[in-house]
Write a protein that binds this DNA or RNA. Structure first.
Lengths: 336, 336
DNA sequence: GGCAGTTGTCGAATCGATTCGACCCAAGGT
DNA sequence: ACCTTGGGTCGAATCGATTCGACAACTGCC
């Protein structure tokens, strides 16, 4: 069932049907009605491939996700979902492409095969080969997170440096003098994962500025790692009274370890951090944290559409600094 | 940059280039080498739309996901990831389409616009309009979960009825006489969500068979709901000594409420269930549970490919009954 | 040497849409 | 009565690949 079939049944030429569909030329009320009736009756929709071929655009955006082997965090998941929602609102489809591992073929098919009008890239590293390759192709793209050299590209990110620094300042204001940063895993830091590195920068700067003593600890992305991490902290740095965390997936384990050790939050220990609202509110007591906005996907899609429309405009950046929601996990430092 | 450009640079016709690419006709070693060199030099990849138009297939599968408004459970997420992975292995791309809400346009574009060779449908309800519509189009599809009338369609599912029954039997064997089922939310049950309903069926049957007393409780998909649910259970059914749960997202809250109430697992209360391994191992003590296999996505893709290859073969079903991994959360019923 | 068979290459048709230029016809102006 | 204008429709070219039939060159056999 194609446009010729519709034209034949309505007794008009193919071009007239096309003009009814696109509205790009006037069609008399009478013919339009007849054609529309046939279309509705047969449930006809134009073939996407033919249309893409002729128009030179696919009305599709690519979303390059990390491979399944690395478990996605809640934040990333919310992000994928919101990208899909936002794209649907703009009548775009989303083509998924895993990257890393041995998924180069997928990346090539999607990007070089002109399957998409633009690409959103997740989980950017400070030095990222995918960015280099994508830039060479000239295809519009937006990255979530930014590379070490961010000027030439279009990106959107959460300002971990500032947020972590604000958490430290908040703790310092409450009288805490010895604080710890619970970061992401050593592996992630080793491969140059931006948020982890920038969190450490913000932490170090704020600690120095306020004259505190600080310790950075790496922690895997799951409850068991969080548990081990708190145990290590209590053992090796028992004098710490304030903790900043950017590792939401470790929160349940941290909570468990603290309870078992008989540490009351925030009486004995204050905790602040950066986390999806869902995790912050699931913590007990509820976590004082900068809630990563769920609309990041929407922003990314908007930015990409803008970039597709005007590819030569200077690249835009969007660095989000959501406010810290004061909840119940931070309080005055205990008297020593 | 298209096939004509490659042909011109290599001094051959377009068809010869195409035959080098597909290998469908013999090409002399010499010409092939020359053409391949040009292809590599320019990094040429055939245009996907043109190829899809001519071949009549897109090498793409659609994945219809629930809308973002309903938070995806970990199980569903693992599923999406494994579908993408499996598709990539088969050199297929995955087109995402949210459904429900006002996302009909997306569904129509993807399905009616012939954007995909087949569709995988998640989160099937007992009566599901999407299945009806899809069946009418004649497009091959596989569902995750099955409808009330499952014979005519191709699906893959976890056998909640049997798994929950086995959990009940396990508890009964340990001497428990009063058991509870912690199910999914009332809303989900109301809209005809299969797993929730079938879990209840399996629970009721097994309870009757073993002459136990059983109570079914609905519970939202988050920690707070799990907490409330356990509080309700302890208050209204204090004599229950065994719990079966299919609500993995509520586990952290359940754990917290139990600890606060001073209930020791499994000394005072045994818990068994169905959950992604990740959740079962994150529980304390580790949860005795049927681990939902992470390869479900792989199976679904395989089934779909088979269906695309032979659309007229009788539809296949795959009902998975993974073994229950005995961990630390179940033990003998307390002496009364 | 002529003929059948094989191998390698090419030209042209095709997939299903969009879009430009051309055409027809009726209305309005002079 | 003729010319212009513009609304409505059509025919044909086009996008970038695949693939079939045709053809040329070469091989081997009688």
């Amino acid at each position: 069932m194609n446009i010729a079939e519709i034209a034949r049944r309505a007794g008009v030429s193919r071009s007239t049907v096309s003009y009814v569909l696109s509205g790009k030329r006037a069609v008399s009320e009478q013919t339009r009605g007849r054609i529309q009736a046939v279309i509705n009756e047969l449930g006809y929709r134009p073939n996407a491939a033919a249309r893409a071929l002729k128009e030179g655009r696919t009305r599709t955006v690519g979303l390059v996700i990390p491979p399944a082997s690395l478990r996605l965090t809640d934040m990333q998941l919310g992000f994928v979902a919101s990208v899909v929602e936002a794209a649907a609102r703009a009548d775009l489809d989303v083509l998924l492409s895993p990257s890393g591992g041995d998924h180069d073929r997928s990346f090539e098919r999607v990007v070089l095969g002109q399957r998409v009008d633009g690409v959103i890239l997740m989980e950017i590293r400070l030095e990222d080969e995918r960015v280099t390759r994508l830039r060479r192709t000239g295809l519009p793209f937006v990255t979530i997170g930014h590379t070490a050299d961010p000027e030439g590209t279009c990106w959107i990110d959460v300002d971990y440096t500032t947020l972590v620094a604000r958490c430290v300042h908040h703790l310092a204001d409450l009288g805490h003098r010895r604080v710890a940063l619970i970061n992401r895993s050593t592996e992630l830091i080793a491969v140059g994962y931006g948020p982890a590195q920038r969190a450490l920068v913000g932490f170090t700067e704020a600690v120095t500025e306020r004259g505190l003593t600080g310790v950075g600890i790496c922690c895997g992305d799951d409850a068991a790692a969080g548990e081990a991490c708190i145990e290590q902290l209590l053992e090796e740095h028992a004098d710490v009274t304030g903790v900043v965390t950017i590792n939401e997936a470790a929160l349940p384990g941290m909570e468990r370890a603290l309870r078992r050790a008989g540490i009351a939050v925030p009486r004995d220990l204050s905790i602040a951090g950066v986390a999806a609202r869902h995790w912050a509110e699931g913590f007990r007591p509820e976590l004082t944290a900068a809630d990563v906005p769920t609309e990041m996907g929407t922003y990314a899609v908007d930015l990409l559409l803008e970039r597709i429309a005007t590819p030569d405009a200077p690249p835009k950046h969007l660095l989000l600094t959501p406010p810290i929601s004061l909840r119940a996990s931070t309080g005055p430092a205990p008297a020593r």
